[in-house]
Design a protein around this nucleic acid. Sequence first.
DNA 1: ACCTGAACACCGTTCAAGT
DNA 2: ACCTGAACACCGTTCAAGT
Lengths: 220, 220
Amino acid sequence: MGGRRPGLLGEESGRRRRRLDRRQVVSAALDLLDEVGLEGLTTRRLAERLGVRSPSLYWHVRDKEELLDLLADRIMSEVPVPAPDLPWRERLERLLTAGRRTLLAHRDAARILAGRPPRGPHWLEVGNAAVGALVDAGLPDRDAVDGVSLVVSYLMGFALEEAESAYGGGDYSEFLATLPPERFPRLTVMAGILSRPDADRQFGYGVRFLLDGLERLAAR
Amino acid sequence: MGGRRPGLLGEESGRRRRRLDRRQVVSAALDLLDEVGLEGLTTRRLAERLGVRSPSLYWHVRDKEELLDLLADRIMSEVPVPAPDLPWRERLERLLTAGRRTLLAHRDAARILAGRPPRGPHWLEVGNAAVGALVDAGLPDRDAVDGVSLVVSYLMGFALEEAESAYGGGDYSEFLATLPPERFPRLTVMAGILSRPDADRQFGYGVRFLLDGLERLAAR
DNA sequence: ACCTGAACACCGTTCAAGT
DNA sequence: ACCTGAACACCGTTCAAGT
């Protein structure tokens, strides 16, 4: 499969094209991730999709770990940094909802991001904006740092769970309903309340809760 | 290496011992995890440590995924469920601090737990207790569910980041200090505030923030 | 400078066969 | 019922060699 037609008009269009650079490698990795998920994202498959043998990748990237670092930051680049003249609460809210959207837009994105220290430039840009929002809110530096840590932990945890249950299969509430009520009385009661399309509302609840709390702190 | 001394006194003490059962497999997996981390936890090494060839494991466990499910719940079994006669806030606080402690007690535990729907009995026990605390606080069912989701997302996100930076290496604040201040003005200011032993305080801040907010909701 | 061929040291899993 | 041997279809990575 994948018949080569050498030099028809320069190069074949689309994928496989010679003279790679890092950007292309990362883009192809992101495409592959979306198609096959993190477990399917192997250096060999990535090379194949780039029309190259797998050892070639190591010219562009130190190892798979670095590839994933680059991929993580590429994903973060899709989170828009809100204009600094917006009110701080609006800025933070936008960062959170955009963060969630981006984390869900790419398969296993949350798993890739959550397991990695935020060293990429785009992550830093977002972190900078988040801290800036809380400083502008009037929080002392230390509280601003703690507040961002709080909010980021929540975002990551939420996106991770949402992605896993959106994909990992099945209604969780259905599962809960099968539990023995005498052992898990609270959970079986909850089974009815819980359903998947609830994720939006649940996230909204969390965001409002957090922003309300931060606003209260800022008011003092 | 690992010379066999067949039938000296029954069986060799310690590891490698015939007649496996699931419990032993999971225990050995946990030990191995702590020694070599998630990437090092392979079916082949696990088998070796059990004195058995790797295909034997498949008699006790469907596949590696199921092994990780079992491992996740084994880890959760280390979180004590607080006595129901304690005040709700104390119960929730204990669950959170014990949760964090357990997630840090085993290498890569947060990564294993966070990526997995909470289906194991011990997870359910803990979830049941958490929902129970908020119901006892006086929150309506739906708010109790949302509150638990909030608090669990935070715990997972926090533990994930803490584990990664505790192990993944290096002071993050040191890294921040190297950033160009004109691009990330907020972050370079923060670099001084941030340091590793801060994690305790930071987690405490988050827990207090969350519990205060929930208490306020309950008071209405 | 960038890519390939061949190889190394691994993986998870299946399956027929042993006891 | 439980375990082994052998095999399959993969992995990530190195390294000498090609252009």
